[in-house]
Design a protein around this nucleic acid. Structure first.
Lengths: 354, 354
DNA sequence: ATGAAAGCGCTAACAT
DNA sequence: ATGTTAGCGCTTTCAT
């Protein structure tokens, strides 16, 4: 036999006060005698009363929940991102509604629409998002923060990883270590992070080894694609002296191709990745890579969103960039040393001239 | 200037019908002329109307959201679990509210309380949960499914990994491969999975190598604790011939200790872990381990919960156990081969005698 | 300091 | 087939 959960009316009746007083006490609004307060609290506790959130948000218009729309939940990246977001949300007294999207833009739109009325704001990470899309699919004036996005909107703050600086630092290190000819294995064409990493590669090459050839291989962030790129590399006439993969998984695949061909890393060829996933440090040889503090990215994004919700946020919507560090292990043949690819949290590479 | 989102009244007015008709159309309840339907749908689309979920759940008592209470969001285990849950939830048209708990039982209780009125059911994974705790902290008759739990409740289904069978299979394999003296590195004492893995170790030893000594080392699932256990092992007089760690991370730490001591794996000593995290296959040597299909665990748990919500679930609350497979790589010196530790999805080891 | 009452946006009887 | 209306449980004026 199901006993219904207690409502505010039950508490009011038992405490012999009005529902208004119960509400005032439980929300700490004051204007209630200590004695009344005590009674109300006791009754509420006795009845195991918990306010109904649906009713509350119906009238207040606030859900104290934020939604996260992520493209997939696979791998360390999203695990860490979610962790960062959840931790920060919990610290802000916010709940986290999680949604993944798989089948492209329509899917993302559906996910966003389904969150209407369930969340006070959204964290969005999607390749398909642009300003027009947001305009169309975000409920009126619902605050949102974008992650890993090229969008420049006056309305939505964006939080990015400084992929470019990270790539530049790593390629720079490779060249300084004596490997002029650095090849690059790229990620998915539509992935913003991948695009920026490629840009960084090009920039660093132009800057530090302008005479060396630019050698790019296609990849899609999967180990398999890295493996294929590695094989292609072996067939190349003048073999590159070093390889910079746009992520660690591809570096791992590449390493496998090299090993199968009897090529020593870093003896015959140097190798570096991007992300610093857990695996990287346990490889043989341990993989040099660019470390991204993904949990921090999630935390910062949520804090930015929370600021928006609280209207604490005075600064206009802007693009923030989270720096990353290169971590040098054995795979690139340099002496072990770590350097900051860019400072802690900083403004975008090219601030408005001022 | 913020234009308020359209409400059902706005749609009714514009469509020149009553709110009831709008509701009927949008919920597909029938009893409405095709013409009226068309008009309503058009107006709703034009006004970009989306029903307010708070209002809807206030009256229906359903949120179409399920809550997941997890102890921490760290590592592959939770990443995979969340992925499995989210995927299944989305397939069922359910939303996922995610909450992690850190500081023990009070924290878990708070998380559960905070979900009151926000979810239709809960997935709970927590060491601190027992039947009494649930009775006290779960809103009245809120459906819930427990994961990795020793609880036997007539009210809440439980979904477990068959840790025992997995451990037995792996230890059995180790012994068959010629390593009679298998040592065990245990996990946290309060962790149910860890307890079961230890039980499996003991059972397998008693069964296959009754004369060999039982050698147990303490650990807490961390790499560091595995490293320490490895060091202690090196100091032991008759060194064990094989080590079975209760999870992969400890096996990794143990491997490091062996390597530092110049011990070859599997040449001098065999090694196996549990979980099959991504890293394991990339180690040198690749680690033999027990593979747990964690995403499946999440999916099954959610499906069980969904069945409960739909009252589709005829079977009484019961304990289900998800089998796991051993995957033999190079670290245990056996020939590469994989065997099922237990069948797909099966009833608990000791079904009520019938 | 306390209470009465008006909704928040929606669904679901109950009328027509 | 369509409309009217009473709440769902809560917060929040506005009285007292």
């Amino acid at each position: 036999m199901t006993t219904k959960n207690a409502t505010i009316k039950d508490v009011a009746r038992e405490a012999k006060v009005s529902v208004a007083s119960v509400s005032r006490v439980l929300n700490g609004l004051g204007g209630v005698t200590p004695v009344t307060q005590k009674i109300v609290r006791e009754v509420a506790a006795r009845l195991n009363y918990v306010p109904d959130n649906a009713a509350r948000s119906l009238i207040t218009g606030r859900t104290h929940t934020i939604g996260a729309v992520l493209p997939d939940l696979h791998g360390e990246f999203f695990s860490e991102l979610i962790r960062g977001i959840e931790l920060a949300a919990r610290a802000q007294g916010l709940h986290l509604l999680l949604s993944s999207t798989h089948d492209g833009i329509e899917d993302a739109a559906a996910a966003m629409r389904a969150m209407r009325g369930r969340v006070d704001g959204m964290l969005i990470l999607s390749e398909h998002v642009d300003a027009a899309f947001l305009e169309e699919n975000l409920p009126d004036k619902l605050p949102a923060v974008l992650l890993d996005s090229p969008v420049k909107s006056a309305r939505y703050p964006v939080l990015n990883i400084d992929n470019r600086a990270g790539a530049i630092a790593m390629v720079g290190h490779l060249i300084e270590a004596g490997h002029q000819q650095v090849a690059f294995i790229g990620g998915p064409k539509t992935n913003y992070n991948a695009q920026q990493r490629e840009k960084g590669y090009r920039t660093a090459m132009a800057r530090h080894a302008p005479d060396a050839p630019l050698t790019l291989f296609d990849g899609n962030f999967s180990e398999e694609s890295g493996y294929r790129a590695g094989q292609q590399m072996l067939a190349k006439k003048p073999r590159p002296q070093a390889v910079f993969a746009a992520n660690d998984m591809m570096a791992i695949g590449c390493l496998r191709a090299f090993r199968e061909a009897g090529l020593a890393v870093p003896g015959d060829i140097a190798l570096a990745g991007f992300d610093d996933i857990l695996v990287s440090r346990y490889l043989t040889p341990p993989l040099s890579t660019v470390q991204v503090r993904i949990a921090d990215l999630g935390r910062l994004a949520l804090e930015r969103l929370a600021a928006l919700l609280n209207r604490t946020d005075k600064t206009p919507a802007s693009v923030q960039t989270l720096g990353c560090d290169i971590v040098i292990r054995e795979s690139c043949g340099g002496k072990a040393a770590a350097g900051a690819a860019s400072r802690k949290l900083r403004k975008p590479p090219r601030p408005s001239r001022s």
